[in-house]
Design a protein around this nucleic acid. Sequence first.
DNA 1: TTTAAAATAATAATGATTATCATTAATAAT
DNA 2: ATTATTAATGATAATCATTATTATTTTAAA
Lengths: 152, 152
Amino acid sequence: MEHRIDRIKKHLHAQSYKLTPQREATVRVLLEREEDHLSAEDVYLLVKEKAPEIGLATVYRTLELLSELKIVDKINFGDGVSRYDLRKEGAAHFHHHLVCTECGAVEEITDDLLEDVEKIVETDWNFKVKDHRLTFHGVCKKCQDQELKVSS
Amino acid sequence: MEHRIDRIKKHLHAQSYKLTPQREATVRVLLEREEDHLSAEDVYLLVKEKAPEIGLATVYRTLELLSELKIVDKINFGDGVSRYDLRKEGAAHFHHHLVCTECGAVEEITDDLLEDVEKIVETDWNFKVKDHRLTFHGVCKKCQDQELKVSS
DNA sequence: TTTAAAATAATAATGATTATCATTAATAAT
DNA sequence: ATTATTAATGATAATCATTATTATTTTAAA
């Protein structure tokens, strides 16, 4: 945890940004709640518990900054709110999501499933891929079982 | 064009919805401007040219309806606006996008690049895939050439 | 025709995000 | 150390996309 924060600090410094207390508090919340797909408001409320004087605008600014530096990924599940996930350390790319259309549950896939596809895009479309986002919509295991139960 | 509208009409009727003049005007705009990634506001202004009495809320409702029936795809490029694309007729899935981070251009890929990946998701994650969205962020051909010119 | 349901236009309300601005903290220059 | 400069912040107002409301109109059914 502390090491991770140190590295993020360096990452910020390299771009001549500082790791202010507010920013650090925000990063800590993201670290504690990894993969929780927190909205800016969620983050704000959690940071407020530790540092009550922080403002919502600062949280937005911090998330935007971290997003530009690719420390967090800004995701959109189409519910009108942006959500923020700490990017796995060393991960070159965004992780993928499985969104269940029945119960709304979101699963993560960190495996790189797109290596081959990316190659195709680079060669066939002359497009230099920097990042990608992949989301599957469908029915999760739990809801599939539910359906079976209901219909039997 | 007319045939397509007929089929959409039937599609609506099958779900006991009507193809009202407002809805038809909206569909026509989407047909004329296929692949243009229009926002609700864009669609509204274009429909207004043909049918000036239409209200913005109706456009939103229509787009939402068409989206539920999978006649249009609701996309989000992270710029705070939802965009609407007519789904290619017979296309079982969403088409993919290449978004250039330099110039903002959006290219379309209609090929199904994810057949193999979907199989993996279905078997390894027990997730019944219904749809997917895949977007690549990177640098398009044009901007790559630009960079070469600048650096030389 | 009468009645009920669906759809609409106009507009108010909402809610997420961004902009503004006065204040404070950090850093650099003297 | 003191001052000047810049960056960052908190509070809050403004913006803007979207949704809800409501009175009215259209459509379909009885």
